[in-house]
Design a protein around this nucleic acid. Structure first.
Lengths: 200, 200
DNA sequence: ACTTTAATTGAACGATCGTTCAATATATAT
DNA sequence: ATATATATTGAACGATCGTTCAATTAAAGT
């Protein structure tokens, strides 16, 4: 004896995520959200509680998609290292065409927010950490496959990869020349390779 | 037969820069600016024209300070490569203590803004390019000092350095553990070294 | 001392912000 | 069909946004 919501929660969150991803936290207003997800204020507040509530759902959705993508790439290749390489290509190159921003939503959020939005900031940090942990897991697997030196700390290698990706994706926002961008990825990975492989 | 302004333009711009640097473009309101620089709306608009005008002045001031710092470090050492290393330490480590944000204001701005704020976005991009060019100049000098391989493209090396710094400074915002951060810089530079030195 | 000119003030503007809520609509249970 | 419960609507709230401008203040020229 009730009434079910008419909106598709998953689709709504996806649209909200894309909007926040493109415009950033502060530049995205409730009015923008209302238009993007085609819901009126009352419904949004009933479902998410606040503008920040929608943002939290967006962050959670984004990190889940990212981890799923990584897992999917892993299933397509025997090589953990190659999986990471293809992930980098995916987020730095292909993301430029389809995604709302060349940047990672999580890194963008960490860059934009301060302690004033403490809860959201911490959530974005934690989400980045989850991605880093997924990287570290693949690094460990790469060690078991003898793709990288076993003397390296997988977590440290994961951190290094995060830094490379973040730097690349910010740079991608300033760089229209796709050739330069390709060369940057190649260079960054050449460096990572020498770092990853240790003394050889 | 006139009246000179009572405020110190340089000091005002410095305070405005620090505010924008810490809070970002969208989160900084005119009210915040009024309080930070101790000027009333009329005076601000007479001097800078708009909120964006203040931001433009901030960007210009920031890039000028950065280039000055680089030049100053260069004067303290014979080694161009060592100059770059000390610059990285300066902006990644020491900046954490004093600066309004661990991040570079220019990178932060490029990360936050979109085509909606086209003029400011382009200015921040151009400012980043000026820093990159300064890096490239030092890379060329480093080649002349036989500190790095002459086969490398200085501009490409400069781009690579920018990416490393950007990645590091974003990561610095998520990382409270200073030891991890130190290790990251060491690692990043170890990679850069191998890249910079070419075949040895 | 008086005039001139520009710098400064602060109230106020319309627009938009995030949010609330009484009114309405509608799916489900009886 | 009717009652019940809840999803949805959209006007409206007070706060704050960037900005304007008539009034005031004060330094410089005569």
């Amino acid at each position: 004896m009730s009434k079910k919501p008419r909106f598709d929660r998953q689709q709504v969150i996806e649209k909200a995520t894309n909007l926040y991803w493109g415009k950033g936290y502060h530049a995205t207003s409730m009015r923008h959200l209302q238009d993007a997800i085609d819901m009126r204020p009352g419904s949004i507040y009933a479902e998410f509680g606040s503008k920040d509530g929608v943002f939290k759902a967006a962050i959670e959705y984004y990190v889940q998609v990212s981890l799923d993508q990584l897992e999917q790439l892993r299933a397509q290749s025997d090589s953990p290292l190659n999986t990471l390489q293809r992930f980098v290509r995916l987020v730095v190159i292909e993301s430029r065409q389809n995604a709302p921003s060349s940047m990672c939503l999580l890194a963008k959020t960490v860059a934009e927010l301060t302690e004033e939005q403490g809860e959201l900031f911490e959530q974005a940090k934690a989400a980045l950490k989850r991605v880093e942990d997924a990287f570290a897991k693949l690094m460990t697997e790469a060690q078991q496959h003898n793709e990288i030196s076993k003397q390296k700390d997988p977590q440290q290698l994961a951190r290094l990869l995060q830094i490379q990706i973040t730097g690349l994706r910010v740079y991608a926002k300033t760089c229209d020349d796709i050739e330069i961008l390709e060369a940057m990825i190649e260079d960054v990975f050449a460096h990572s390779q020498s770092g990853l492989n240790g003394v050889q």
